[in-house]
């Protein structure tokens, strides 16, 4: 990723601080990416779910988050677009920077953040509305100004990008719930694309799907990364290896007070992480010695 020099100048705190903060984790090379976390802790009430996560996600790449269940992958993911705001007890310390702006700063609008950083969930969750409306709704509420035919184009474009158009073009008025699981998930991806985000977060998007549907989604992700930065949580290491450019391994440890707090072990290019991991814990995990 090439980085415009003036951007570093415009954001004086960004470059040096990142380099310090990420320390051992390999992220500083590329400079600030589209999204960065800096010493981020996430709490649920008094429970610290993840501690001290600093990582930087690069433009137009797929990053994968892996690790044993309960290590806080979903928690980290939700913190990246303030979906954690929906959980009353959740609290984030540290910073998450999006294009250099801390999204947890008091004057930042979480609604705006979520439009730019879209999300696809573990279980497909289409609205109980027509396929067309599923996609059009997001655009409408975000102030879509085009005509009716513009809207049709937008819906078609989103469905084409999500590789769903051919399957549904004759039944746009049918309920989104009438589709198969894999189609529903692609509908959810199309819906996310239609509001023109530049990052898409996916939390185990294939875990509820059969292998064929999974394959289609994986192919789709590879196509989408031309235009979007994608961050995906997966419990499936093969999937991470197949689709991602970089992979982060999270682990969970008992801290001194007996809490099971997750932390980032290693964030490296995927081929590096799976062949020559830096950390012993990563190696144990990917070779299946635990987790």
């Amino acid at each position: 990723m090439n980085e415009t020099p003036e951007s570093t100048v415009l954001d004086p705190t960004a470059a040096p601080a990142t380099a310090d903060a990420v320390g051992g984790v390999e992220a500083a090379d590329d400079g600030p990416g589209v999204l960065e976390t800096r010493s981020m802790d996430v709490f649920y009430g008094d429970f610290k779910a993840v501690a001290d996560v600093s990582m930087s996600f690069t433009f137009n790449e797929i990053s994968a988050l892996i690790g044993p269940s309960g290590c806080g992958k979903s928690t980290v993911l939700r913190s990246l677009n303030r979906m954690n705001d929906l959980i009353p007890t959740a609290r984030v310390d540290g910073e998450v920077r999006y294009h250099g702006t801390n999204i947890y700063a008091g004057d930042v609008d979480p609604v705006e953040i979520r439009r730019r950083i879209g999300m696809v969930f573990q279980k497909p969750n289409p609205f109980p509305k027509s396929i067309f409306d599923n996609i059009a709704w997001g655009a409408k509420i975000n102030g879509f100004k085009g005509s009716k035919s513009d809207m049709k184009d937008l819906v078609q474009g989103a469905l084409e990008q999500a590789a769903l158009w051919d399957e549904v073009k004759d039944k746009l008025t049918e309920s989104g719930l009438s589709l198969s699981g894999g189609q529903q998930q692609r509908l959810c991806i199309a819906r996310a694309i239609a509001v023109q985000p530049d990052v898409i977060l996916m939390d185990e998007p294939c875990s509820a799907l059969d292998p064929i549907a999974t394959l289609r989604i994986e192919e789709l992700m590879l196509e989408l990364k031309e235009n979007y930065s994608i961050i995906i949580v997966t419990h499936n290491m093969q999937q991470a290896a197949r689709v991602s450019d970089r992979t982060a391994f999270f682990n969970v440890e008992l801290d001194t007070t007996g809490q099971r707090t997750g932390h980032l072990v290693e964030f490296s290019p995927t081929d590096v992480l799976f062949t020559t991991p830096k950390e012993k814990a990563t190696e144990d995990y990917i070779t299946g010695r635990f987790g």
Binding site: S7, L10, D11, A14, V34, Y98, H99, G100, I103, D109
Partner: peptide, 20 residues
């Protein structure tokens, strides 16, 4: 897509400002 240019600057900060 904005992502291609990678501007992390004051304009973006402005756009993310809390709406009334």
């Amino acid at each position: 897509m904005t992502s291609e240019t990678g501007v992390h600057d004051a304009t973006m900060a402005e756009q993310l400002k809390r709406r009334n």
